[in-house]
Design a protein around this nucleic acid. Sequence first.
RNA 1: GCCUGGGUGGUGGAAUAGGUAGACACAAGGGACUUAAAAUCCCUUGCACCAAGCGUGCGUGCGGGUUCGAUUCCCGCCCCAGGCACCA
Length: 843
Amino acid sequence: MLRAPWRQKGKGRKMELKYSPKAIEEKWQAHWEKENLFAVTEDESREKYYLLEMFPYPSGRIHMGHVRNYSIGDVVARFLRMRGFNVLHPMGWDAFGMPAENAAIKAGIHPATWTRENIDYMKKQLKKLGFSYDWSREMATCDVSYYRWEQLFFLKMYEKGLAYKKSSYVNWCETCQTVLANEQVEGGACWRCDQSVAQKEMDQWFFKITEYVEELLDHTDKLPGWPERVLTMQKNWIGKSFGSRIFFPLEGMDDQLTVFTTRADTLFGATFMSIAPEHPMVKVLSRGTSQEEAVTDFVQRTVLSKRGDREAGMVEKEGIFTGSYCINPVTRARMPIYVANFVLMEYGTGAVMAVPAHDHRDFEFACKYGLPVKVVIQPDKGSTPLNPEGLTAAFEEDGVLVESGEFSGMPSEDARVAITEHLAGNGQGELTTQYRLRDWGISRQRYWGAPIPIIYCETCGTVPVPPEDLPVVLPTDVELLPNGASPLPVHEPFAVVNCPACGETARRETDTMDTFVESSWYFARFASGNHGEGPLDREKVKYWLPVNQYIGGIEHAVLHLLYSRFFTKVLRDMGYLTVDEPFENLLTQGMVIKDGAKMSKSKGNVVDPDQMVEAYGADTVRLFCLFASPPEKDLEWSDQGVEGSFRFISRIWRLVAENEKALREAVPYEGGAQLSKPLRDLHRKTHQTIRKVSEDIHDRFHFNTAIASVMELVNMMYQLQESPPSDDRYWPVMKEGVEAMVLLLSPIVPHVAEELWRGLGHEESIVNAPWPRWREEALEADEMLIVVQVNGKLRSRVTVSARAGREEMERAALQDERVQDFIAGKDIRKVVVVPGKLVNIVL
RNA sequence: GCCUGGGUGGUGGAAUAGGUAGACACAAGGGACUUAAAAUCCCUUGCACCAAGCGUGCGUGCGGGUUCGAUUCCCGCCCCAGGCACCA
């Protein structure tokens, strides 16, 4: 048992009057660690709570965003622990990724060394902040003992067809020398380095996330604990739309072009066809025509242009006639086929039927190339009809069909189905559903990642590494190339292997997996401890999952959170997990900003957590992060606000230190005995505060208002100290208030709370102290202040008995002198009484 | 363009179920203590007017509406932030 300073110091004043955080923080951190207070095991007799914060990338040092994220999580973890839950609160490292490689190239340190050193430093930082993690579960995703299981998942996914390889145009970042998933391209630029992304045709591994698209979409309605905007972002990303697939026969060829459209009602107005430059039919359609050379030229130019510019609509619409025609299946009209730079190969079928009268893009294109415009939809009655001759813009809304044969007169909505069904009858079309979501490309041409367990053999083709040969260990004896290209392909001992099937010399896959794969299942690994027999311990995972509360930044709204949901479903179907969704509740905290902008080195507005902890202590930094704004909002850093937080802790410190002896000797008041009014007020305030803080933390994570209410309690105790009552219950009631204050603040400022708790005479750690309960009878006041309004305007306040009913409230209000002035000589039409709140007299 | 949030004092923010708008804090001002300063403690602090009161009027982006009563609910608009965006 560690000896507390007030005992070490012997006689005289035992607690320092001045609050100095350094010594007490180090002392209690060491104590908690030694006593192993935060390690947990499965315990069926207790209700479990799995609290998780997004684990950090070990970039070197933690930043204020981490401090905020983890402070929020720690309050919840400590609070629920005091409430008796078996709380799992783990921490680890998202340790694969490019910064390690970049540092290696720049500074000549091996990525593994760099990562390890960063982890060591950041772990020290987290410990200095006093977070209550179960460090026994710590892991880094670059550990072989972690990624080996990911390779096993890959093999199982490969077996089920959920991991497959295909050649396609992919997003290529020249700076990062690697491919990016669609989710990792933001506004046409790389999510990490901002480099504009180009298209490149490559052989790549994909995870078939589209296999789960319906479930991923459906389950967004089964996540009431997620913020609406995150769910909306995911729904938008999945981008489900209903429409039709229509087949257009090619003139003079025994083949057809397939398009996807949501506007089959406009089919009679389709006058030409636009296809993507990457479309496989481009070559066939232009071959042998006078356009052949020009088309090849155009395609080359367009495909090479930056995807970002092309996708963002920055490039002017351009196209070229292929030299071939197709036939409109309903009008039999000849439609020229164009290659157009605005048609995307990745969406739909890569071919679009162009209806210039009813689509602004087609309109723009038709005007530019002098193509026919045919109006087939007229606005509903009441609006001015479209003039087919002088059309100045496309009419894109629904309306009534015209010039559409038997479908003329039909509303758009009905016609979409009717026309498609008509086509379906002739095998010329079908109703279909289209998604924006595409499969997740996971190949990365980088070194610092988990190797993909595949071998290429000249005779046997693609051969998965047999599970018993796992792990495929990432070699560490590599020389990193200055241009960032992966050294693995030229690392012979790694790249050259014997084929597991025929034994002949073969080559390994040298691409590594996207690091988002690691973070897609780490939460389940934490629940398994460092299970050695397999990826997950089914029983343990069953006990802990799902994560009850997940906390992290909004920036992962689509990326990490969508991938994790997908992985959870895959692992469920493999029999590892029993849950459908990984995270029951999600809290997305706001950014930490300074001077109105996100903290960044380039803006020079970074506040260093180390310096802050050094200057004020961890408790002050935590308190400020929680007090300055509610978690989901941005937090504006304020040095003066930090000073204020430090002052508040000093204030509670002095309240205990200055009255140490009296408080230690007092027995907390527990009700019963009669109290004088000031003490009754304090007793009530104490219990009101307990209720307020409990509800604010439990129901809504509003720590700022919880802290504010403790401040009110503290202010009241200081007020009472100004003129202490002679009542002999003074110290018992003060002790009740002080103990509540310390307990309520302990999840937020755990070190100072622990110190004060011991100072009040407690032998056991506050970490395991039960959370205080409020008593209803203590909340009851003997009188209450009610508001009196006349015609809805506040005119007076009257004090009535707490038990006053409607009649008594009304009587008291009407008798009030000030109210009398307002109602004298007037008829009272109505009196509204809200029990316990107000009386409104309507004249 | 579409989809989400959001707009409250000098500042961060509060008002949880339609019921005292501005809790709590920062900043500012004043006072006490001190030889002085710092620290600490206490008081004032939305705006305007004034007869200076437990005063009156105004006030939660703007304009309407519902209601005895609206920061809160409804309709229309403006602005800011984030996401998606040539998605056919």
